[in-house]
Design a binder for these strands. Structure first.
Lengths: 125, 125
DNA sequence: CGGCATCCTTCTCGATACTG
DNA sequence: CAGTATCGAGAAGGATGCCG
């Protein structure tokens, strides 16, 4: 296991770890959770309120995945009622910055994309 | 329809167009198709070969979506056997550049992410 | 409050076969 | 070659109820 990276990563190959990572990251709730956490620490309920339409199940699942991959940390306060906070790690902040660029781009180009869709729909048969 | 952007886009709101756009973009095959097209024009079969494991159905669906949103153009040559080529639009190139950064980041951080996963798995009960 | 367990529906996706 | 059509498995995701 102490192998160096003597193989070339190839996101196109299903067996390549980079492919798997990309697959995990291609997820709407993951995007949104990362975006929400850019503004700092947040409690579970805060996130649930911010991510309109997310079920507790999906939010938990998403946050667990992010924690597993080292992109966020989860802190549990031993109080009643329970209090759990989530925060980006340095690695997570890097990634969130890139996702932020995607979001910014998406927002900036919504009009153009919607126009393209109308054009496309308009020339059907 | 001639409305200016007097509303504030909010990716967290399900009804916001930017949310829809983000949702569409959260897709593995879309990522990979865009990456493959960064190197120029490609035929359907070329793409199918490049994207390991993609079925013709999913590839068609992915490419249609990208075409619909104005990110790629599809050119059909009236020959036998058929020849169809796909190419990024200027808008698509912009977006592909951002996705490329995500890919690069993913590849660069595969080791760190895999380590995080092992740590996470290791401290389970 | 912040989950987890369970059930159940939906729907994506892959495999396969076929066609202009 | 570049798709389309069809089918079925399996995963994703919502709803609900319970618990520390």
């Amino acid at each position: 296991m102490e192998s160096r990276d003597f193989v070339t990563y190839d996101v196109f190959r299903r067996s390549c770890p980079s492919h798997t990572v990309l697959e995990v990251l291609s997820n709407k709730w993951l995007y949104l959770a990362m975006m929400a956490l850019r503004s700092g620490r947040h409690r579970f309920t805060d996130l649930q309120r911010r991510l309109e339409g997310v079920s507790p199940k999906m939010l938990t699942q998403t946050l667990r995945g992010l924690e597993r991959d080292g992109l966020i940390v989860r802190e549990v306060f031993p109080v009643v009622p329970p209090r759990v906070e989530y925060e980006l790690t340095p690695l997570g902040r890097e990634f969130a910055r890139l996702l932020g660029q995607i979001c910014d781009w998406a927002i900036a180009n919504v009009p153009e994309i919607l126009e393209a869709r109308e054009r496309y729909a308009g020339r059907e048969k």
